[in-house]
């Protein structure tokens, strides 16, 4: 019953996705960090994000999953302009916004906003929450000076908080409330795209559900497009239209959410999905051995081969390309397609 309902819902959603235009196109985005352990030590290159290519469609929710170290957060920071890419382009509605730091310093925040992981760390403890939301309004002159307070109160109401909370400090709020404040602050600039970087991971499960519902409500009210980053597949599945699986900075698989769960083409996707607890089906867990390899010296060939249970010789030698196996379904594996 559950599957039928969900898949029906997903088909309509998927149609909407196909119809709409890409709002963001990410083209071969690559980010390396050069690090030195000692002052005169050898430079080492961290391959954080490598050749990432995808499109984000208007009004969709794109989920991104992967272990820590898979480059999800770096990707988010590249798109918001917090980091500059080593290579590649980010196109926003046809306009190149790569290296946005200068030319678009003023525009990007109004287009793409971000909600961070830790609601305790993402609010300045010395600034009243109302002022925290008012600051971007004032700096970007979103509303008239006299109307700032009214606008902040409207935003507080929008995320389900009382307008009287304007004059309180962050430490007076719970994690869930703080995350609502952070969301209100991000929405102050009326962005079209909201990137949620592990936005519910730090919250209790019951609060997670509330915040996820808030995200869904806001999406409908404000016609937002989401990139939803998480490591909890069940959460990402709940909210996403499409899901992108990342490993060591590369896209391993990208597909509509239902299809990804039903087909599980990539071995890494299979392992991730098998780790999701399921009451109805008893599934075999695929336990991956070891940790994600260091991004300083990523494995040759397929980056996943060191932990893959389907590994053969070709995996060590040849780097698989991302292949389209079905409309909108891409997989990076030698044995698929």
């Amino acid at each position: 019953m559950r599957t039928i309902m969900c898949s029906a819902g997903c088909i309509t959603r998927k149609e909407a996705v196909v119809m709409s235009e890409p709002i963001i196109e990410v083209k071969n985005l690559t980010k390396y960090f050069d690090v030195r352990k000692y002052l005169l030590g050898k430079r080492e290159r961290v391959h954080a994000v490598e050749n990432v290519l995808f499109e984000l469609y208007e009004s969709e929710t794109l989920g991104i999953v992967g272990e820590s170290g898979s480059g999800k957060s770096t990707l988010a920071r590249l798109i918001t302009g917090l980091l500059e890419p080593t290579r590649g382009k980010i196109i926003y509605k046809g306009i190149d916004i790569t290296g946005s730091r200068r030319a678009y310093l003023n525009k990007i925040p109004k287009l793409i906003q971000m909600v961070f992981q830790d609601p305790y760390a993402s609010l300045n403890p010395r600034i009243k929450v109302g002022e925290a939301i008012a600051e971007p309004l004032r700096i970007h002159k979103i509303v008239d000076k006299k109307e700032v307070r009214t606008e902040v109160e409207r935003l507080l109401k929008l995320v389900g908080l009382q307008p009287e909370m304007y004059d309180r400090f962050p430490h007076e709020f719970s994690g869930g409330q703080r995350q609502r404040i952070v969301i209100a602050r991000a929405l102050a600039l009326k962005p079209e795209v909201l990137i949620c970087d592990e936005a519910v991971s730090a919250l209790d499960v019951s609060i997670q559900a509330q915040i996820l519902n808030l995200f869904n409500q806001l999406k409908e009210k404000l016609n937002l497009t989401y990139i939803f980053i998480g490591h909890d597949l069940s959460v990402v599945k709940y909210i996403s239209d499409r899901i992108m699986v990342m490993y060591l900075g590369e896209i391993m698989e990208i597909a509509p959410a239902e299809e990804l769960f039903n087909k599980k083409l990539h071995p890494y996707t299979q392992a991730l999905i098998s780790a999701v607890p399921d009451i109805e089906e008893e599934n075999k867990r695929i336990i991956l051995e070891g940790d994600i390899p260091s991004p300083i010296n990523p494995p040759t060939g397929c980056k996943f081969h060191t932990r893959c249970f389907k590994k053969r010789k070709i995996c060590e030698e040849e780097h698989p390309e991302l292949k389209e196996v079905a409309p909108g379904h891409y997989v990076r594996c030698h044995f698929v397609g």
Partner: peptide, 16 residues
């Protein structure tokens, strides 16, 4: 801390 990154993301000038 994340609120500094959040401020950057909101386009708050470096001086502020």
């Amino acid at each position: 801390l994340q609120f500094i990154e959040a401020a950057k993301c909101l386009g708050i000038p470096t001086g502020n």
